[in-house]
Design a protein around this nucleic acid. Structure first.
Lengths: 213, 213
DNA sequence: AAGCTTCCATACTAATCAGTCCGGAAGTGG
DNA sequence: CCACTTCCGGACTGATTAGTATGGAAGCTT
């Protein structure tokens, strides 16, 4: 069915990007509709609600877009053509670079966007928690894959390695916002990956060859 | 000068604790004065402002109390009678236990309390950032102490180890809020500390240090 | 151009935000 | 007891919150 009637005057896509930037910088709750409408091209309340439904619906759409773009830095976690170790290393390095890129707010929207929520907005907090859980499971899957192919011993790595890498991944959001640069975080990733090598079944044998990122 | 006049009816100390719990769970901005007054014993606005000055002043006092109590888990960082490695390990383990204790909200007030701030509340964000910077410097001081006493090689550890440990420390706040338990985080600390041991000068294996880009 | 559909500017809710003011009540020290 | 100090209940401020209603303008299809 073709679209009839007067077309909207603002660029919905650009408006969504503006909202993304604003939510990224401030988080869900303190970002007001007035701020949003202003940044989205001085659109009117009527236009806003016609195009996006509500503040929460807009935020869900923003999160979706974030996951499809910036959030793709974690995609290696689900790429089974990569060696498990490389998948995790690439995820961490790409996250470090992305979160510190100066073309957008520092840190990670999924980690920081819904930290401070009143009871009425718990659904927003839950939405982001679900996405964090996804990363957590992705990391765990990599570790389990490494165990399955004999690269790591089963215990205790299957339990603790995912927690360690996930905590670091999420912690980078805080460090990036506090001003750490890409090189700084990347060096920390290098150091962290030595934990993997230290736990590898054949100590040190493959570590040099695996570092081809 | 002795205190004259009608004494206040509510317990200022208990009220401060109630405010601490509320700010801890929700963060600064979404916590409203109505919520605060209700939890602080149904006190009136007049009583609130007479006792605490303003919402921000109350928050600063809450942060102060937090640092003097729960925040003391990081005290080992400045205890020079401890070996540097032990200071960091104890800090991480005590943080893990504290942040997951079910007698209060999960996570860390300093990391999570001011994540989402509107422009007008940037001072609150800055207050917490300053405290995080304090931990960061404490960790760095431990690493430098280890280098000074010959336990670690100077480069590249002085630059990267503090970043790694700090990111993990702050990342635990996210994991604790997402439901990780004390044992889970503690095991991750154990694994993380292997990085330190791998970089220790003693073993004579410089391969690890040489692998940095 | 006719008729229909959609958009948008403006004015407007009702609720909540942090914070103030006042006048009476309740204790204190002398 | 008196005078003084402090506290507190409740009404109130102006600003801001997310979201609505209305009516005219603009553009598409025929």
């Amino acid at each position: 069915m073709a679209r009839t009637g007067r077309p909207r005057e603002f660029d919905r896509d650009k408006a969504l990007d503006a909202a993304l930037t604003l939510f990224w910088a401030q988080g869900y709750e303190p970002t007001s509709l007035n701020q949003l409408k202003a940044r989205m091209g001085n659109i009117s309340p009527a236009s806003f609600y016609a195009a996006f439904g509500s503040k929460e619906a807009l935020f869900r759409e923003v999160v979706q877009r974030y996951l499809e773009t910036y959030g793709q830095v974690t995609a290696p976690l689900w790429d089974e053509t990569l060696a498990p170790r490389d998948a995790i290393e690439q995820t961490l390095r790409r996250s470090a670079r992305m979160q510190t890129d100066r073309s957008h707010p520092p840190g990670c929207l999924i980690v920081l966007g819904g930290c401070n929520c009143a009871p009425e907005n718990l659904s927003v907090q839950a939405l982001l928690a679900t996405e964090r859980e996804r990363s957590r499971r992705g990391i765990r899957a990599c570790v389990e894959r490494a165990v399955a192919c004999g690269e790591l011993a089963a215990l205790p790595t299957t339990e603790t390695l995912p927690v360690l890498f996930t905590a670091f991944l999420h912690g980078m959001a805080c460090e990036a916002r506090d001003g750490d640069g890409a090189a700084t975080l990347d060096a920390a990733v290098t150091t962290l990956m030595q934990v993997w090598d230290g736990l590898a079944v054949k100590p040190g044998l493959f570590s040099a060859a695996d570092r081809l990122s």
